[in-house]
Design a protein around this nucleic acid. Structure first.
Length: 481
DNA sequence: GGGTTACCGGGG
DNA sequence: CCCGGTAACC
């Protein structure tokens, strides 16, 4: 039996799996090098993600995005036409293929030099989009993100799946007959779907999570899960419905959960609730604002009301500073600001081999090369795998996809977002991501006053919203000493 | 109430 | 001693 592949014509500049799946947005994708031992380090990679009923497989070539799905034994690998369509729908939705990324980059380039390839060296990573993730998994992941780094968040999220949900399948399937003639088949990996909130709702999971390395976040996860299951019959569906809510309302709801502060809430809003304009702020993004736009905190944003921060000094992120940076960047970046942030953030990740311009103030430890410029591998579909004709979708010639979101209006950003950020609001067509133009983004500097409209304006005062106590969790301190 | 401090564990 | 934060405590 072999895995059947389908493909969607797509350039890496329209979406780059290598850049986006490991950029700290999602933490559950497995990247498997398909290289035979002698292959160059740039050999093709297969990305896999376990959903509730299937394992999604993705690969990418310079011209296509290849996708496939593997099902557990009963259904076996047999992918019915309907299931293939489902898989493609998931892929297009999750990767936001309805958004014309190249056009977004072009538009940014008109306003920001950093987005222009000045001299052979593009300053930013290509093909970085904001993924449309499952809200519950996203919430869980970012609760884990506090005081943490990508690699550990990844191990926490993955061990949570391994320990709290039953295995769905193993892949590659253990070879029936030992190893055939082909190259040494990779170790089979067992995949687990991401567990629902109910799996973490009992206080008894806290010590287990601690053993798994969650640290103090164990209590946050459990109490948040408990709140969700006791307040809603279908917690995951309820979370998903926040996509239809105004940003302020959705954020308010998220802030009620334990372990969810402004930063985490904003990450969830952007990466799973369709709030494309929301820009999560951390120290890193603050540095980007300083470096690229010469942003400087007002004295009010500095602790102790200091006059100003001396250069080189580390500035702690306070709620006030958070607001200031977010407002400034929102005004600069507009309704797709969250995406802009994602690109610049990914471009600064050392393990993505990226770098900004040579003369940037950012210390360069990595060679000036973008991973997308590495030598391209030759084969993407190893022996035994059947490459099928182009996607079964309505025609789509190789060089372009057909984004349903387009840019209009004098090259200016003219998208409608799923929320209203300035005067004219726009309606979002639910279901698909069909969104249509409607407003213009005004050109603005880095003024520090003026609320950048909805989303950014929500004063921190909203946090007063008391967090619901979880009755079943009288074990407050959860001290495991 | 806004400014500290503890928290858990990995990495420089 | 640093940290992709947040909750709890003055």
């Amino acid at each position: 039996m072999s895995v059947v592949w389908y493909s969607i014509p797509l350039r890496p500049s329209q979406l780059s799996l290598a850049h986006v799946l490991k950029s700290g947005q999602s933490f559950r994708w497995t990247a498997t090098p398909l290289a035979s031992p002698s292959s160059p380090p740039s050999a093709p990679t297969e990305y896999s993600l376990c959903l509730s009923d299937r394992l999604i497989l993705l690969r990418q070539s310079p011209t296509h995005l290849h996708y496939s799905a593997v099902f557990p034994p009963p259904t076996q690998g047999e992918a019915t036409e309907e299931k293939v369509k489902e898989t493609e729908r998931f892929v297009r939705d999750y990767l936001r293929l309805d958004v014309d990324l190249e056009e977004l980059y072009r538009t940014w380039g008109e306003k920001d030099a950093v987005f222009r390839k000045e001299e052979g060296d593009g300053g930013v990573l290509e093909g970085v989009a904001v993924l449309r993730q499952d809200p519950w998994e996203c919430l869980f992941s970012f609760i884990c993100s506090s005081n943490n780094n990508i690699s550990r968040i990844t191990s926490m999220v993955q061990s949570a799946a391994r320990h709290f949900s039953p295995p769905l399948l193993s892949y590659p399937s253990p070879p029936a007959s030992s190893s055939s003639s082909s190259s040494p088949s990779p170790e089979p990996t067992t995949y687990h779907p991401f567990p629902p909130p109910s799996a973490f709702a009992s206080p008894s999971v806290v010590p287990i999570l601690r053993d798994l390395g969650f640290g103090y976040r164990a209590g946050f996860i459990q109490r948040t899960a408990a709140m969700l299951v006791e307040e809603h019959v279908e917690p995951e569906e309820w979370l998903r419905e926040l996509r239809e809510s105004e940003t302020a309302k959705a954020r308010e709801e998220l802030l009620r959960f334990l372990g969810v502060g402004r930063k985490v809430a904003d990450c969830v809003l952007l990466m799973s609730l369709d709030k494309n304009d929301i820009i999560p702020i951390d120290v890193h993004v603050h540095q980007i604002a300083q470096r690229l736009y010469n942003f400087r905190p007002s004295s009010a944003a500095l602790p102790g009301g200091k006059r100003k921060a001396s250069s080189g000094e580390k500035i702690p992120m306070t709620p006030k500073l958070y607001e200031e940076v977010q407002t400034a960047l929102s005004e600069r970046w507009g309704v797709w600001g969250g995406w802009t942030q994602a690109v610049l953030f990914a471009s600064d990740l050392p393990f993505l081999l990226s770098s900004l311009a040579p003369n940037s103030t950012k210390p360069l430890k990595q060679p000036l090369i973008r991973s997308s410029q590495l030598p391209q591998p030759t084969s993407y579909l190893p022996e035994g795998l059947v490459a099928l004709p182009e996607s079964m979708l309505p025609s789509s010639p190789p060089p372009e996809t057909k984004p349903s979101v387009k840019v209009e209006g004098g090259g200016r950003l003219a998208f409608a977002s799923s929320k209203q950020i300035s005067s004219s609001s726009s309606r979002k067509v639910k279901g698909g991501n069909e969104v249509r133009v409607k407003e213009e983004v005004k050109e603005i500097g880095l003024a520090q006053e003026a609320e950048g409209g909805e989303g950014v304006g929500g004063s921190l005062g909203e946090r007063i919203k008391r967090r619901r106590r979880n009755p079943t969790t009288s074990t407050r301190g959860v001290s495991t000493k």
